[in-house]
């Protein structure tokens, strides 16, 4: 018990002293995951919209496919991407393996179905009259889509935050296609795994605290958004 208290104290000291190594890992994590979520969101939300508003054969199957991808283990995506990006793989000549770009691609694959499924649910909860009213008032297709997105903005924001929470806390993809290279591809989760395996618990706990704080913040913000949504409807 004393050991745990001592390690937690050391972790707090590391965090508060502005330890350069630790904070560079935190920054790298945020930078990579923000890129992934920003690149994925527009296309994923358009797919969610199309699944809601466009009638085409196989629509239900595609939706079921995205829903089933919600529970795919991150190591499986990491493995799949590793096979594609390895020197002998079909995209080996792009030399993306063990780069930040590889992690971004992996995290994009991970959060895409989350954004589609949750975005679909948010748009489905919206009133069909939003789209019809926008169209009949002369709005072009793209502006009508934006109008629908604006009317369900709280639900969509919740989807984006959930997707971000999923990718910043994943370890499988980052470890397999990032390679955990210090100062280049080492992020919060891979650093925790490494430090723990070395018996260096202080840095692991400090990084864990950052992730936990982020989780609490995201949950608090989601609750706030939920409250706002109920208030405005």
């Amino acid at each position: 018990m004393n050991g745990l208290l001592l390690t937690t104290q050391q972790a707090l000291q590391l965090l508060l002293s502005g330890d350069a190594e630790l904070w560079s890992i935190v920054l790298l994590s945020f930078s990579v995951s923000l890129k992934a979520i920003l690149l994925t969101t527009p296309l994923a939300l358009l797919v969610a919209f199309a699944l809601n508003h466009v009638n085409f054969p196989g629509r239900r199957i595609i939706l079921a496919f995205f829903n089933s991808l919600l529970s795919v283990p991150t190591v499986v995506i990491g493995l799949f991407l590793y096979v594609l990006l390895t020197r002998q793989g079909p995209f080996g000549n792009l030399r993306l393996l063990f780069t930040q770009s590889a992690i971004v691609i992996g995290q994009m694959i991970l959060c895409f179905p989350v954004l589609v499924a949750l975005g679909y649910a948010a748009i489905q909860a919206s009133d069909r009259r939003v789209w019809e009213t926008a169209r009949t008032l002369g709005a072009p297709t793209w502006f009508s889509i934006l109008t629908v997105f604006y009317e369900v903005r709280f639900g969509l924001l919740a989807a984006v935050l959930t997707g971000f929470g999923r990718i910043i806390s994943e370890v499988g993809i980052s470890m397999m296609v990032g390679g955990n290279i210090m100062g280049y591809t080492r992020n919060i989760t891979t650093a925790i795994a490494l430090e723990t395996s070395k018996g260096e618990f202080a840095q692991g706990i400090a990084l864990g605290m950052v992730l936990l704080s982020l989780a609490f913040l995201l949950t608090a913000f989601l609750s706030y958004i939920q409250g706002k949504k109920e208030f405005t409807t």
Binding site: E132, T136, G138, T147, T232
Partner: peptide
């Protein structure tokens, strides 16, 4: 049609 005709729902939908 979309330029010249406007349809109003039974219960109008007003945007936020």
């Amino acid at each position: 049609i979309l330029k010249e005709i406007i349809y109003l729902h039974q219960q109008p939908l007003l945007f936020s």
